[in-house]
């Protein structure tokens, strides 16, 4: 895996920055609604039908815990989604590189590395799902 800083060409779309703005904006709206008690609650249809959690169950409670600044609880509600969210958040921050340094970050994987990473993600995903079942989240 290689991290490379390459020149940001003028007119290129800054995708990480767009995602940063979209998620910051929607996060702020959700936080405001939560504070006013107007945030609608969602029920997982998978859990409704089967009685067992789906792989993303606990994400709403994870976000609500973050809004209450309970980071440990947030992690325990769905560790996979929490870690994914942190990695995603770090990636969106790279959107500021073109603004200040006129460069963008590129992550390059070899074919074999990519396969290994996909397998690791799949295992983590399944382990996380098993954790959700065992804990009854």
């Amino acid at each position: 895996m290689k991290f490379k800083l390459v020149r940001y060409e003028k007119g290129e779309i800054n995708i990480p920055l767009i995602y940063f703005l979209v998620f910051s904006f929607s996060g702020l709206i959700a936080f405001a609604l939560f504070r006013c008690g107007l945030l609608p609650t969602f029920k997982c249809q998978f859990k409704e039908f089967t009685g067992h959690p789906c792989p993303t169950c606990g994400t709403t409670r994870l976000v609500l815990s973050i809004f209450q600044f309970k980071i440990r609880d947030a992690f325990l509600f769905n560790p996979f989604m929490f870690v994914s969210g942190v990695i995603f958040g770090l990636w969106t921050l790279t959107g500021f590189l073109p603004l200040f340094f006129k460069k963008k970050l590129i992550v390059q994987f070899g074919k074999r590395e990519k396969k290994v990473i996909v397998i690791i993600i799949a295992i983590m995903f399944l382990l996380n799902w098993a954790y959700l079942w065992i804990e009854g989240i």
Binding site: I18, Y19, V22, F25, I29
Partner: peptide, 13 residues
């Protein structure tokens, strides 16, 4: 419109 833009980016991502 705001909801559509947010949903578009999440879905396509």
């Amino acid at each position: 419109p705001i909801g559509i833009v947010i949903a578009l980016f999440i879905t396509s991502g």
